[in-house]
């Protein structure tokens, strides 16, 4: 009698990640993205989602991939969190997975810091490992700001050093 988690699985790089299906609003093709100046580089910009302005984050950059290439099957996962919409660019979004709640393990401690502090657990489905993401941490302004700032500092320091 174990509960099942319904998860939308998507690929970023070689890994499969998952977010709860309840937080998914829709999946769209990548439209024209308007870049916002002075924002962290993993924030791609904003898109027009049928008259709504939605900010878009490139998960590939967020998870540390340097050169994210634009491919035809790239998608934007529009997720709803705390009443607002946000877009996540992923390599491809494929499936809905049902993971028994007892097949989810807590994330290893190394994930608690850095860019991956948004991992809530690791789910196992037929031998595959799904990295489950926590929306609130992923989209939390605090983590974004601190990351953006540290980056700014880094570049500033670099500039100062030269």
């Amino acid at each position: 009698m174990s509960r099942e988690l319904h998860i939308v699985g998507f690929q970023v790089g070689r890994e499969t990640y998952g977010v709860p299906i309840t937080s998914l609003h829709e999946i769209v093709r990548v439209p024209e993205i308007t870049a916002v100046p002075d924002a962290p580089d993993y924030l791609e910009g904003v898109i027009n989602l049928r008259g709504k302005i939605v900010s878009v984050m490139d998960l590939r950059k967020r998870f540390g991939e340097k050169q994210a290439s634009v491919k035809r099957n790239n998608r934007i996962l529009v997720v709803e969190h705390a009443g607002r919409l946000a877009g996540l660019i992923v390599d491809s979004a494929s499936e809905v997975l049902k993971i028994p709640a007892d097949a989810v393990e807590a994330p290893p401690a190394v994930f608690q810091e850095g860019g991956l502090n948004c991992v809530t657990g690791l789910g196992k489905v037929s031998g595959r490992l799904i990295v489950l993401l926590d929306m609130s941490k992923l989209l939390a302004p605090a983590s974004l700001v601190s990351k953006g700032e540290s980056e700014d500092k880094k570049t500033a320091a670099k500039a100062g050093a030269r």
């Binding site: 924002a39 924030l43 302005i53 939605v54 984050m57 302004p141 700001v145 953006g148």
Partner: peptide, 15 residues
């Protein structure tokens, strides 16, 4: 309004 929780920039006031 831009989602100012995500974008900390003050260069842009809206879209």
């Amino acid at each position: 309004a831009l989602d100012d929780q995500t974008f900390s920039t003050d260069l842009v006031s809206g879209a």
